[in-house]
């Protein structure tokens, strides 16, 4: 029932035939199940390899295009706006600003999460506007997050880091 439309009921013809788990298990519905085993190992390539190696060292690396002047993260070997190779690599700070966020309550199978996950896009300090990393926030209550909040990366320990985006465990408020 739609919010704010409490006096409206579904017309009878739209009800359909409800199906239960039991109907499916007892074979009342004809179906074939398959669970394909398909695996990939994507070559990270020049730009992302260097980025991942940087994460392993606890650094966020970006690239610079001297034509448009943008500092881009995650890095790439070419500037997609100027269509030319990038000019320089730069180390960026591991701090940034929450550009947008969502407090997410259910998992991909639509089951409730034990604790909500705060997903955010973080504009990295030192990179050009709208250049950032999508990651998660923690050590903050959902009701305290706001757009424009300054945050800092919380890294795994040096021994735990493996050259993956998850080498950053999460981001937390810079103050407090």
């Amino acid at each position: 029932m739609a919010v704010g439309k409490k006096d409206i009921e579904c017309p009878p013809y739209a009800e359909g035939t409800p199906l239960s788990d039991e109907d499916i298990k007892s074979g009342k519905v004809t179906y074939v199940e398959d669970h394909p085993d398909i695996r990939y190992s994507w070559t990270a390539g020049q730009a992302i390899s260097r980025f991942l190696n940087g994460l392993k060292e606890g650094k966020i690396l970006g690239v610079k295009c001297n034509k448009c002047g943008r500092i881009m993260v995650p890095p790439r070997m070419f500037c997609e706006l100027c269509f030319k190779p990038i000019d320089d690599w730069v180390e960026l700070k591991d701090t940034g600003t929450v550009q947008t966020f969502s407090i997410s309550y259910i998992d991909p199978d639509a089951r409730p999460l034990p604790e909500p996950i705060i997903v955010a896009v973080i504009a990295i300090d030192g990179a050009s506007p709208n250049m950032g990393i999508m990651h998660i926030l923690d050590e903050v209550k959902p009701e305290d997050v706001y757009i424009g909040m300054k945050v800092k990366a919380v890294w795994k320990s040096e021994e735990e880091r493996e050259g993956a985006i998850t080498d950053i465990k999460y981001w937390k408020p810079l103050e407090g």
């Binding site: 070559t43 390539g45 269509f83």
Partner: peptide, 19 residues
């Protein structure tokens, strides 16, 4: 095999040559 380049990078190389 192309262990040194990502699929994006081989596309960029081919496209740049074509243009």
């Amino acid at each position: 095999n192309t262990p040194d380049l990502s699929w994006k990078e081989i596309m960029y190389e081919a496209a740049l040559r074509a243009y």
